[in-house]
Design a protein around this nucleic acid. Structure first.
Lengths: 148, 148
DNA sequence: GTCGTTATGACATGTTCAATGTCAAATTTT
DNA sequence: AAAATTTGACATTGAACATGTCATAACGAC
């Protein structure tokens, strides 16, 4: 039964993601942000200043694509270059005051939405689900690597 | 805390999906199937014979794209046309013997994989996670609709 | 039955997200 | 100092869809 439920869980991931991103997108409509620009801002907010290649590692996509997103947020004034002590060529990206305010507001409103979404679920259930999803994701990644 | 955990859970959905599909793809490598062809076969296997528009509703993508996938599986001999009593123009798609054997084999091997993935998780935890993900997905969908 | 509406298949084109390839300049390693 | 690596910039390509259109066929209302 467990394996069966896991199989279903795994195949729910695409609908989950689509619903989630549709919701986030609706919340972003008033701002000038795209979902991918939001992702860059969130990384900087959670993990502090990063170079473009650093962000690419976290998002697990290629640096070339992150570069495009980063340049968009730069142009929008949400992010700025800072001197990088570890690399003279490649600057670190840092949230501007404006960018920080924006991403914090977005995340706060998303979390407010989560109250609505979590109706009917207990704290414990949600924690369990988060742990399960974490472990499953990790195991799938190692498994995929092994099979290649 | 609950809202916070939910927020994290929701944003784990993309990594989960990517890991899952990478794994599935590795499993499909030996067959001539693509991930999207596999999806069509699975729908037919789970829900019985369907028309192209029916499948599109289930997959929540446009019928035009499903048509392309369906034609691929038709060409591969995994699926065949059957007369549709409810619509004379649009035939129902049905698994051929070959198609049924293939998709059943694939699902069986995926479920075997899930034993590996589920190591360290109890039956109850997985069931809880599945229910949480189901509810969250559903709530997010209604929410997204409301906001539009 | 006829007529307007809807459904379907086929096809053409557009969009988004991202991978891949390449280059020059800068940087790091040895 | 030479070789290898890293980074940014740019160009090309591909997959997974969405969108638009058309002709034909099917259906429902009258």
């Amino acid at each position: 039964m467990k394996a069966n439920h896991l199989h279903k869980l795994v195949w729910m991931s695409r609908p989950l993601m689509q619903a989630a991103e549709a919701c986030v997108e609706a919340g972003l409509a008033e701002t000038s942000l795209t979902v991918r620009m939001r992702a860059v801002l969130e990384i900087l907010h959670q993990h502090g200043d990063q170079t473009v290649p650093d962000i690419a590692v976290r998002l697990e996509i290629k640096r070339q694509y992150v570069q495009v997103m980063a340049n968009e947020t730069l142009a929008a004034g949400l992010v700025e270059h800072r001197a990088n002590p570890r690399h003279k060529r490649s600057p670190v990206l840092a949230l501007t005051k404006q960018g920080r305010a924006l991403i914090e507001g977005i995340i706060a409103s998303e979390i407010r939405l989560m109250d609505e979404v979590g109706k009917g679920l207990s704290d414990a259930e949600v924690s369990t689900a988060l742990e399960v999803v974490r472990l499953v994701t990790q195991n799938l990644k190692t498994l995929a690597k092994d099979r290649k």
